[in-house]
């Protein structure tokens, strides 16, 4: 029994790299959870995916210039992600093409460019690092970056929370009382890119979006207001990080996929057990209430 409990804490007591990975997951989850909820509510679930791929060429250019440097790769990734978001947004605004189509076009260009750069100039090991991340090699500098991004995310969301929600629930109303919500939309897209950059060096560009979308998709089955959904999503993300790290430590699995698969399990459990439209609630015969 004590050995079992020990297994829950010992890895983090014993190894500083595990502690750092845990703190990184905590910060990532706190930022990614709420951002993911807002992404799903804005019907942009797949755009998170698109943006995560868009980050690649920037990170690759950063890598080419400065080697495996966190600062260079993060700055490059951020610049590439924001460029794709802006170009897609501009095309939508000025041509009327739907944003999902313009996003898809620009992220594919960006992704191909990224793979081209990495494969011509780096080794395949580097490509694997960028694609899948190395959460167990998180150093103090990257920890600081991830924590700063999480703090900035929560502060900014608090500032733009009300208009952001109105803009996504009833854009016509926001337009009629204030102005177009473009500035809020833009600020939000920047937050998405920032969180993907925070996630990509821990989980890799392919996995980063997982910690954003899976907890958010799961939260919908537990809560029915935006703030409570965001809280549930952050909780699921943090817990997935912790359990995923344990799983990867005890069974010698790569940490990124272990974390995302844990979040995936949380999603499947939520679909089944969640009190809001979960499968059991839906199909369990329950006596209806008096009128």
């Amino acid at each position: 029994m004590s050995g079992w409990i020990d297994g829950l804490f010992a890895p983090f007591v014993e190894f500083s790299f595990m502690r750092r990975a845990l703190v990184a997951c905590l910060a990532l989850g706190l930022g990614c959870g709420p951002v993911g909820v807002l992404l799903t509510l804005r019907r942009m679930s797949l755009m998170g995916d698109a943006l995560s791929h868009a980050v690649l060429p920037g990170a690759a250019i950063g890598f080419l210039i400065a080697g495996f440097s966190l600062t260079a790769m993060s700055l490059g990734g951020f610049a590439a992600g924001v460029t794709v978001a802006l170009l897609a947004g501009l095309v939508t605004r000025f041509t009327g093409q739907r944003e999902d189509a313009s996003f898809a076009a620009f992220y594919l260009i960006s992704l191909a460019l990224g793979v081209l750069i990495v494969s011509t100039r780096g080794s395949s090991v580097d490509l694997l690092h960028v694609l899948f991340g190395t959460i167990l090699a998180v150093d103090d500098a990257s920890l600081l970056l991830v924590a700063s991004i999480a703090s900035l995310t929560l502060l900014t969301l608090a500032l733009i929370y009300r208009p952001l929600i109105v803009e996504c629930f009833d854009p016509g109303f926001l337009q009629s009382v204030q102005a177009r919500g473009t500035a809020y939309h833009l600020a939000f897209l920047i937050l998405v890119v920032l969180n993907l950059v925070a996630g990509f060096q821990a989980l890799g560009t392919l996995m980063a979006v997982g910690l954003m979308m899976l907890p958010a998709a799961a939260a919908r089955f537990w809560a029915q207001e935006v703030w409570s959904m965001a809280a549930v999503a952050a909780g699921i993300a943090v817990l997935s990080g912790y359990l995923g790290l344990l799983l990867s430590y005890h069974h010698d699995l790569p940490s990124g996929p272990a974390i995302i698969l844990t979040a995936g399990m949380a999603y499947l459990l939520s679909i089944t057990l969640g009190p809001r439209d979960g499968l059991i609630v839906r199909f369990l015969p329950r006596q209806h209430l008096q009128t």
Binding site: L41, I165, C168, F169, D170, P171, G172, A223, Q224, V226
Partner: peptide, 8 residues
């Protein structure tokens, strides 16, 4: 134009 499924 309003999302009537929105959690609010």
């Amino acid at each position: 134009q309003i999302d009537r499924q929105f959690p609010i």
